[in-house]
Computed example of a mutant assay.
Amino acid sequence: MKLRKAGIATISVLALALTATACGDGGKKDKGGSGSDSSGGSKSIKIGIKYDQPGIGQKAPDGSFAGFDVDVATFVAKELGYSEDQIEFVETPSADRETALKRGDVEFIAASYSINDERDKLVDFAGPYLLAHQDLLVASDSDIKEGTDLNGKKLCSVSGSTSAQNVKKEIAPKAQLKELSTYSECLEGLAGGSIDALTTDDSILAGYASQEQYKGKFKLAGLKLSNENYGIGVKDGNTALKDKINTALEKMVADGAWQKAVDDNFGPAGYKNEPAPKIGNIVK
């Protein structure tokens, strides 16, 4: 009889232990990040950004990151339940963005990622979180005020970009197009007087012009030559994450953090930003 009672007691203890273990697992928060462990929790989240765009996404020599997209991505990650030390930023060049999401290399991408019909077939987009425009960056004392003023002037952009080609084709056919390897090279030419204007998205131009060595030397022409709706890319079909990111973006705008990020990253170039776009409102 004593043996039987001991057996019952042992079984009871085991049952209680199993119940407690089950309750403990159920209380863990599954963040759903790319660093998820076997128990369903998550240690980190990988986010795709640019490493070489001042004001947008840039990696400093000390390994730190700065830029508008970095601020947006950090805010979103925190709303998803991650602390800053749990965020791992991954360099995601433009040509590799869709592939990186498909492979699962990153959980989401915030990298001056303009929403368009072709990309929308391959990934899902949260946002938009910024409405940018193709524009011109010129010297602060330049008399270029409209696109046609570029006729006979030297216009710079990076090799393979459609921005300068569009200006030359649609607005200033007599512009002298110069294509260089990087925007930084174009900017150096603009500072030295060998280039009259640089063209790409106004947010990117503002980021470059906001660098300490260039403050006060350049201005945006404010021509709004195109509409670029920046979105946060997630893997195609991941509507749950997309919805969570949209909620985070709405909160970022509502509490003033979005405007602060705009002012901090683009303000020195006199960037006149559009109001924060409404989620799902794509301006054609």
Results as ranks from 00 to 15, higher is better:
residue 10 T to S: 05
residue 11 I to V: 15
residue 15 A to W: 05
residue 15 A to P: 02
residue 16 L to V: 11
residue 23 C to W: 13
residue 36 S to F: 00
residue 45 I to H: 05
residue 45 I to F: 06
residue 45 I to Q: 07
residue 52 D to A: 06
residue 59 K to N: 03
residue 61 P to I: 09
residue 73 A to D: 06
residue 77 A to E: 10
residue 77 A to I: 08
residue 80 L to E: 01
residue 82 Y to M: 05
residue 85 D to E: 12
residue 87 I to Q: 03
residue 89 F to I: 13
residue 105 D to K: 11
residue 111 A to P: 06
residue 124 D to P: 11
residue 124 D to L: 08
residue 128 P to N: 12
residue 143 D to P: 03
residue 144 I to C: 04
residue 146 E to M: 04
residue 147 G to N: 02
residue 148 T to C: 04
residue 154 K to G: 03
residue 154 K to V: 11
residue 163 S to E: 14
residue 166 N to Y: 10
residue 166 N to K: 07
residue 170 E to V: 14
residue 174 K to G: 09
residue 175 A to C: 14
residue 179 E to L: 06
residue 179 E to H: 03
residue 186 C to N: 12
residue 193 G to E: 09
residue 194 S to R: 06
residue 195 I to T: 13
residue 196 D to W: 04
residue 201 D to W: 13
residue 210 S to G: 09
residue 214 Y to N: 11
residue 214 Y to D: 12
residue 218 F to Q: 02
residue 220 L to I: 03
residue 221 A to R: 07
residue 221 A to F: 06
residue 222 G to R: 14
residue 225 L to C: 02
residue 229 N to K: 09
residue 231 G to H: 06
residue 239 T to K: 15
residue 253 V to N: 07
residue 256 G to L: 09
residue 258 W to N: 04
residue 274 E to S: 13
residue 278 K to R: 13
